[in-house]
Design a protein around this nucleic acid. Structure first.
Lengths: 252, 252
DNA sequence: CGCGGCATTGATCCCGGTCAAAGGTCGTGG
DNA sequence: CCACGACCTTTGACCGGGATCAATGCCGCG
């Protein structure tokens, strides 16, 4: 995606936001990220933002390092993960374009982030961004909303990791990806083709499994006629309904 | 705890918060919950808040139900959990006094909440609370901060559930509880006595294990001289350092 | 005293991890 | 364009941690 387009603010609404009691200000959308902010904030953010390209495999930030920037993912897919001292890793979240990498009001990154393919990001100095938010309730609300959704997804992941067997985890994962890549699709249509931007090891680290178990689950779905695997990272979903049944806990 | 004391706002700071550019307003702490808000917001929240007592085992809200209230837990311990259609449950979080049960800007509860012992809560109509937040950046920031911490803890839980064996999960859990119940304790002091407000089944549902596995882990710690169990819900930690070593992944 | 609910302990089983090998895929360079 | 090699994925054989099933113990309460 063109970075100019990405940074360019887009006027999305003629609705006006009543600032406490002294002034009105247009609310605009900042970039492709879907953050809403006053025209003034948008302009200021454009000023302090710088763009950056990441090669596949490049690390953007490390867990526990002091937070310097808030990042907006403009293009590409990234993973956020935590490491255990013995080298095991757990991916907490995959991020696609439009998502924000931010832990406002916190001092250190709570996870490392790495580009899965080539990525483009915008970076905003964290402290300045915090100050803008403190003065722009609409922006804070917007970030708040994203954080809220992230929390909900984390809770779903907790349920998945704590109480679902391997097969269900994998089918859930496939259906999630399908929904992400076809947001308009009312999840009924059969024959959806999805592209996995991550390797098996990342899927395993996300689902709390091993690559072998993930691979076996894929093979089982293929044997059962639920999916095709023209290539390792290309999945053809034939029967989302039956796949979904796999993911609902077996004997209910 | 006396509900009057709980609701009563406490003037905690003479610091003044510069509202955009027209007016200064004291920032006070609302109740025991640690939310910061303007004097005006505090007064309004006191007006719309109502208190409620919950008996042990009583459910406060159900997953997927439309959100009516934001709750502030004044006293007692509660659990937040999700259910699978086959009846398995996963506790995402235990809440103790001072915590907020809120998913601002979201329409439905993402989990059910139940009192573990007798509890006292404050409830504020969600929509009104949202409106107050929209006009009070300090309050929004305060809630934001709590959500941010909740998210961090969720991420830790994801790591625990995805990548830690049973023994580590349980030792982590005990150390967490110890830290919560002795916030001042610099986690070095040996011989800490903790009270478990929840039954084995809740610990199991929180750690993604079965009650038997939790019980076996407790017994192992007892055999190894790391803890005492004068009663099932009373744990005497003898050697937090060795317990912590158990929780760091085995071969690092 | 006896009952009901919770916790502990033991015996067994099975899902998913580990170890090992073979098969695919893709990039690189001849 | 093909051949090589590195890496990723798949498949198989085996093992072990934790679940399941079952019995016993513990404690509070009627």
């Amino acid at each position: 995606m063109d970075i100019i387009t990405a940074i360019n603010t887009k006027h999305t609404s003629t609705r006006r936001y009543l600032k406490s009691d002294h002034q009105t200000n247009d609310i605009r959308q900042f970039g492709v990220v879907g953050l809403m902010a006053t025209t003034h904030s948008c302009a200021y953010m454009r000023d302090i933002a710088s763009s950056r390209n990441l090669a596949a495999g490049e690390t953007l930030c490390w867990e526990d390092d002091p937070i310097q920037y808030t990042y907006l993912l403009i293009d590409g897919t990234m993973k956020a993960y935590k490491l255990l001292p013995n080298g095991r890793s757990q991916i907490t979240r995959f991020m696609t374009s439009g998502e924000i990498i931010s832990s406002p009001l916190i001092d250190n990154y709570s996870y490392s982030t790495e580009a899965l393919g080539d990525c483009t990001i915008l970076q905003l100095p964290q402290k300045r961004f915090d100050k803008i938010m403190a003065k722009d309730p609409a922006l804070m609300k917007s970030v708040f909303e994203k954080l809220s959704i992230e929390l909900q997804q984390a809770q779903k992941q907790i349920l998945l990791l704590g109480r679902m067997p391997a097969i269900e985890r994998v089918s859930n994962f496939l259906l999630d990806i399908a929904k992400r890549q076809n947001p308009q699709n009312p999840l009924l249509k059969a024959d959806v083709l999805i592209t996995l931007p991550m390797a098996r090891v990342d899927i395993a680290d996300y689902l709390g499994l091993t690559i072998e178990t993930v691979s076996r689950a894929f093979s089982k779905f293929r044997r059962d006629g639920l999916i095709d695997l023209p290539r390792p990272n290309l999945v053809h979903l034939h029967d989302q309904t039956r796949l979904r049944e796999q993911s609902r806990s077996l004997a209910d």
